[in-house]
Write a protein that binds this DNA or RNA. Structure first.
Length: 229
DNA sequence: AGCCAGGCTACCG
DNA sequence: CGGTAGCATGGC
């Protein structure tokens, strides 16, 4: 989705979108997805798969997560009920490629307990934050990608890039970055559905860009976003 | 061989 | 509060 540049944050978005194009974002094992379509998840199964992916991808590459999800799928265990009833060791070995498999196995089981109690209702951000294993980024990722709520996701890349560009100083807090990005974007976009799409694409674009230019030190080499304040 | 990956908790002062 | 060790595998 194109938007008109009128402030710093939009210029950032436009430069990234111009360069990398629509990212689509959340990749699925079940059902696939199409670029430029935003009516996902299309099923409860996809919704749960996003939540699972969010937990598994903590401090890991998504390609590792895909392996774990395929392992689970091959065992017929890509649903909350199946994971709940499978042996713990089987769960651990399935998600092994994503690292931290002991922690993540218990995080997943705790999330499932929480998820099933929701009974189809969308969780609040605060509720998610009270689930062990769900921090700020995971809560926002689940809300944004699984529940299509307008919650901007801030990850290590986002902070690193914005610090490098001089928007924030070292040690900036999650909340500060999130509030800034959201308030800037909301100045131009009022429609909730549009906001969700922008937030989804924006985070994906930042990751795409940061993988290229903000992965190894010194950060920002070859970054063309010299447009900031 | 070492550093990094789409973080979070627990525990420290 | 803020800071940090520990968690673990896989890719480059």
């Amino acid at each position: 989705m194109r938007i008109l540049a009128s402030n710093l944050v939009f210029r950032l978005y436009e430069s990234l979108y111009e360069t990398y194009g629509a990212q689509g974002w959340w990749p699925f094992i079940k059902g696939g997805y199409h670029l430029g379509e935003y009516d996902y998840p299309k099923s409860e199964a996809q919704l749960f798969e996003i939540c699972l992916g969010v937990i598994l991808t903590q401090n890991t590459t998504f390609t590792s997560v895909v392996k774990s999800l395929h392992n689970l799928n091959d065992m017929g265990c890509l649903t909350s009920s199946a994971i709940k009833t499978m042996p713990l060791d089987a769960l651990k070995s399935a998600i092994r490629p994503s690292g931290y498999f002991n922690q993540k196995a218990s995080y997943i089981l705790e999330f499932i307990t929480f998820f099933e109690k929701l009974n189809g209702r969308a969780p609040t951000r605060d509720e998610l934050l009270h689930v062990r294993g769900i921090g700020e980024e995971s809560a926002d990722s689940i809300l944004l990608y699984a529940y299509n709520r307008a919650e901007f996701v801030v990850d290590a890349y986002t902070k690193r890039m914005l610090i490098h560009l001089g928007v924030f100083g070292e040690g900036v807090k999650y909340r500060e970055v999130k509030d800034f990005m959201q308030s800037q974007i909301k100045k131009e976009i009022a429609d909730e559905k549009e906001l969700v799409i922008i937030y989804q694409e924006f985070h994906a674009l930042i990751v795409a860009h940061a993988k290229k230019h903000y992965s190894k030190k010194p950060y920002g080499v070859g970054c063309f976003l010299d447009i900031i304040p």
